[in-house]
């Protein structure tokens, strides 16, 4: 039994709150059959299945970018979703940041990003191996937008537990093709765990050639 691939459509709402974010979130969920993860600056007025906030607030998951955000007081951190640049060695600063968050909060998920010139494929492969072994109880994902599809496809093949994130609606076909090559089904899901299987890509049969008249070469006005 092979593990399925998950497509988690994500809506990022910018930090400056606008009143149309509520209907926007509703439209986003309606467009994805009631599934989808939403990252918002404050709680929404509508019921959503999967939500994380970019500002820490008790009772909500805190979505923190460890490379960019100023960390708040330790006691205000609760459960966190961490986005961090992939640490590749013991002296990496992103490892120190991840470690600080791990000590003072309950890390629910880690999403790794790639800094292409600093992260060759060799380093990523080894780093992911180490991270997946070090945090077996945390769901680890990679950001496909920064990793690139070629690297992401290879890493998904090498590490079946890896989550692929940051896949836009118009990139879904790439995930479907990856699923086809790896022989894994693709499910639409968010972090509330009520997945729905996606139908496979359409298959086109290669049609039969036109009948050949063996006494003529195929001439037409286009072929002189």
């Amino acid at each position: 039994m092979t593990k399925p691939l998950y497509w988690i459509p994500t809506l990022f709402l910018p930090n400056h709150w606008q009143p149309f974010y509520d209907p926007l979130a509703k439209m986003f969920l309606a467009a994805h059959q009631g599934r989808g993860h939403i990252v918002s600056p404050q709680p929404l007025g509508v019921q959503v299945p999967s939500l994380a906030l970019t500002q820490p607030q008790s009772g909500y998951v805190y979505h923190v970018n460890a490379d960019r955000d100023q960390l708040p007081n330790r006691d205000r951190l609760g459960v966190t979703d961490v986005v961090v640049s992939c640490p590749t060695g013991i002296e990496d600063t992103s490892l120190a940041r991840l470690n600080a968050l791990y000590r003072y909060s309950t890390v629910r998920r880690i999403t790794l990003t790639r800094d292409a010139p600093r992260h060759p494929l060799l380093a990523l492969s080894r780093a992911l191996d180490t991270i997946l072994q070090s945090f077996p109880h945390i769901s680890v994902g990679i950001d496909v937008e920064t990793f690139g599809w070629d690297a992401a496809a290879h890493l998904a093949q090498q590490f079946p537990d890896l989550r692929l994130e940051g896949i836009d609606d118009n990139q879904l076909w790439q995930l479907m093709q990856l699923g086809q090559v790896l022989g894994r089904t693709v499910w639409l899901d968010d972090f509330s765990h009520h997945p729905k299987a996606l139908p496979p890509l359409p298959q086109f049969k290669i049609s039969d050639p036109p009948p050949i008249d063996v006494h003529r070469i195929p001439f037409s006005s286009r072929f002189r």
Partner: peptide, 11 residues
């Protein structure tokens, strides 16, 4: 010709 598709990188 939608039936003629390129190969995936892993393939």
């Amino acid at each position: 010709q939608p039936e003629l598709e390129p190969m995936h990188i892993l393939a």
